[in-house]
Each structure stands twice: as structure tokens, then as C-alpha cells.
Design a protein around this nucleic acid. Structure first.
Lengths: 225, 225
DNA sequence: AGAGCCTAAATTGTCAACAATCTATTAAAT
DNA sequence: ATTTAATAGATTGTTGACAATTTAGGCTCT
């Protein structure tokens, strides 16, 4: 019965993979930069074997792109790809909201509202401190997705698609710049879910995400490209 | 400028990955079976290094599940997971059909109809020869997805989600058992796309996939579990 | 007889050296 | 002077051996 809760039930490649994901998402490893296997291996004090396995996983997450015999680069997310992802989010999170309205327990619905109360406080008193700007929105969507009950959908959105979105948010300092508007939309969605109105929740979620997509498009054009 | 079109511009791990995907999908490697790295490596005449990298990719495709220090197993697709995937297909391929109706060129619309003519021939004269039963349906959906123009959506459906569906089709000998019905639905979808009616195409596609899902549920219950 | 522990074999995870490929620099030729 | 080709360096891909962990078998004890 090895260690009760062993310090590494997981393998080096797995932990390294997680570490690299957050490093890329947070920008510690610059987007677009080339990845040198010897350098990275030394930086994380691991061998190239586990590193290559971890990179294979990141490739599957579309966080790095590999060219055989030429090496791996951190992806650069352009407007094009971001818009594509938001269109997919629109379809999938709309579906998640509908399912959440059908499946959420009373306790979860209350917790969802309380989460938004917390967000409101943070918006007021700190004018959007970084963390809540970035991860708070994610928390809200995350809970709804979780409540969908569709495990494959959960994996798809939370473990395979959201990294790129978080990556974008860490790069664009103040993304929406309108946390109050987003909060109001969140409240509407939460209300629809609270009432068990799945159709309406789906509609509101789709509109919410499509609005966010348009903001991104506007922001990109304003930024020159 | 190495070989003009070199026999292996790709790496061993990449080719091996593809080989393993098809082997699993076609059932050459039994679903649920444990994967022995030494055995598999010897069977494919490769070393364990590339094999492990390939397995990492298959893990990302949800074709194998790994347990640290315990090994990898080929996934067994239960009704639960299959239904989840079909719900996701409903949302995503509905969206793909809508986009295809907006984006398809005249030539592609004709080709789509011709493809269905070909399917009709094969259904009549061969009473559903295996290949067309299995891959023909895929071809139809494949073209519509491709025409969506959303590269991320294309990857998601064609490279990350469809393997499991094909795997199911290879296992259940005669799946729908109603190729004629499916063909009729395909014709309706193609017609809607031909007329550029995206909303209707989406609706029909969703209904088509939801019908397929119910057939699978019925079939599973009939099969005992 | 059955449960639990211990030992041993097999398997997975990791590492470091070797081979193959690409990139950059330098030299040569037009 | 610019382009092309060749060479050297660095980097990626691959291999086989080593270490750590798990599983199966047998033994002991209750």
C-alpha cells in the first residue's frame, strides 16, 4: 500500500504536462516561441523521454504544433482560430446550459447565484482585480458545464478547449473591459437555470458567448490586425 | 531537400499512431484488451519509445485509457458514452450543416447529390455491402463537416470524435439496418443545403442524428444490456 | 479453509547514449 | 553581388539498458 497519498501517484510526464499547460497559458513560455527539448528538459529537471510524451499531449490540446524533425512551437492564437472556438463554444455551452437547467440540484442553483454575488463584490471593490477578471468568468461557465452531466462534453470543454481561451485572456490585459455587462448576462442565465427553463438558458448562453465573440473581433481590429 | 516525397516525412510515432487507430477501430486489437508495451512493440517492429508517444496520442483521442504504473487498455464503449457523443454530434453537426449551406460552392452541392446517388445504387444492388454501410454514411457527414469552413470544428469531429463512432459501427455488424431510411434523410439534408436553407439543414441534421441515437439505444437494449 | 502478508517475476517509467535529420554558416561559382 | 551548394553544428528521433512499481503466486498464521 505504498504512500497513503503518494506525492506522485502520477508519472513525471503527466505532472510535467500540467506544468507546461499552465506555463503556456500564463505566458511564462511565450506564445510562438520555439521549444528546445534539451533546454526545457534541463529547466524542469527532467529527461527528454517524459518531456516528449508531455509534448505529445500538448499537441493533442493544440497548445503546441509539431513539425517532424523540425521541432515544436507554442501556438499563436489568431483571431481566426479564436472565432472558430467561440462558435463551437456557442453550440456546446448552449447545450450545456440547457442540460444544466434540467439536471442541477437545488443546492447547486443556489451556489451558482452565490458565486455571482461574490463576483459582484469583487467587481465593485477592486474594479476587476486580475484574477477575478480572468478566472471568475471561467468558474461560472465551468459550473454550468459540470452540471450538464455529459462527461464527454465536460472533458471537451474544460480539458481540451478552454486552455486556449484562458491563454487568450492572459494575453489581452483587459479583455471584455465590461465585467458589469458580463455579470448581468450571467445573472440572466443563472435565473433561467434556476427556473428550470432550459430553452431560455440555452438561448441566453448562446447570445452571451456570441457577444463575447464580437467583442473579441472588435478588440482585434482595434489592436491593428 | 531530402526525398522528393519521402517515404516517411513523418515520424515512426506518427505512423504507428495511425496504424494503431485503424487497428483499434477495425477491431484487430480487441476493445477492452490490455496493451502490453513489449508485445505491441515487437508486433509492429518498433521500440517502446515511439510506441509510448503513439499511446499518448491515442489517450488524447480517448481510444485507450491509461493508469499510471498499471498500463493501458483499449476503451470499451458503452451505451452511456455513445449517447453522450451523439448528443455532441447533434449540436456540432447541426452547426456544420448550417454553415455548409452558407458556404458550399455550386460544384460541391452537386457532388453531394451525386454521392447520394452512388449510395442509392449500392444499397439497391448489394443490399448494403459492408463498406458502404459503414463508411458511406461517414463520407456524407464528412463532406458537410468539411464544407463548414471551421477548421477547428473539422478537426474536432473528423479527427477527434469520429474514431469512436466508426469503432462502434465495426462492432455492431448491421447497425441501423435501415440504410434506405438514412438515405432519405440524407437526401432531405442535401436538398436543404442545395437551397441554401441553413436553418432547415441544421434542423434536419439534428433530427437525423437524434434518430440515429435512438436507434442505438434501442439496439443496445435489444442486445441485452 | 480462508485471509493476509511477503517474495519474485513481469511490466511500466525513466534515463542516457546513438543515429538521422534539419538549419545556419561559409565558400564557390555565375 | 547574389545565388547556389556543401559542410559543420545543433537538434530531433530512436534505441536499449536501468530503476521503480505493480501484480501474481505461495507461504504462514488464525
Amino acid at each position: 500500500m505504498q504512500a497513503l497519498f503518494s506525492q506522485d501517484a502520477r508519472t513525471i510526464a503527466d505532472r510535467l504536462g500540467d506544468a507546461l499547460v499552465t506555463a503556456i497559458v500564463k505566458g511564462d513560455i511565450a506564445s510562438g516561441s520555439k521549444i528546445s527539448e534539451p533546454d526545457l528538459a534541463q529547466a524542469y529537471r527532467v529527461s527528454r523521454g517524459p518531456l516528449r510524451e508531455a509534448l505529445r499531449r500538448l499537441e493533442g490540446l493544440h497548445l503546441v504544433s509539431r513539425v517532424p524533425h523540425a521541432g515544436a512551437r507554442v501556438v499563436t492564437l489568431g483571431l481566426e482560430e479564436l472565432v472558430e472556438i467561440y462558435h463551437i463554444r456557442e453550440a456546446l455551452e448552449g447545450m450545456a446550459a440547457r442540460l444544466a437547467a434540467a439536471n442541477m440540484r437545488e443546492e447547486e442553483r443556489r451556489a451558482l447565484t452565490q458565486l455571482l454575488d461574490l463576483h459582484e463584490e469583487n467587481i465593485e471593490q477592486s474594479q476587476g482585480r486580475e484574477y477575478f477578471q480572468r478566472e471568475g468568468d471561467f468558474d461560472f461557465h465551468y459550473r454550468i458545464i459540470q452540471a450538464s452531466g455529459n462527461q464527454r462534453l465536460i472533458d471537451l470543454l474544460c480539458s481540451e478547449l478552454y486552455h486556449l481561451i484562458r491563454m487568450y485572456r492572459y494575453r489581452s490585459a483587459r479583455m471584455t473591459a465590461r465585467p458589469a455587462v458580463a455579470l448581468a448576462e450571467h445573472r440572466q442565465i443563472a435565473a433561467a437555470i434556476a427556473h428550470g427553463d432550459g430553452e431560455f438558458a440555452e438561448m441566453l448562453m448562446r447570445k452571451h458567448i456570441s457577444t463575447a465573440r464580437r467583442n473579441i473581433e472588435r478588440q482585434f481590429r482595434a489592436a491593428g490586425e
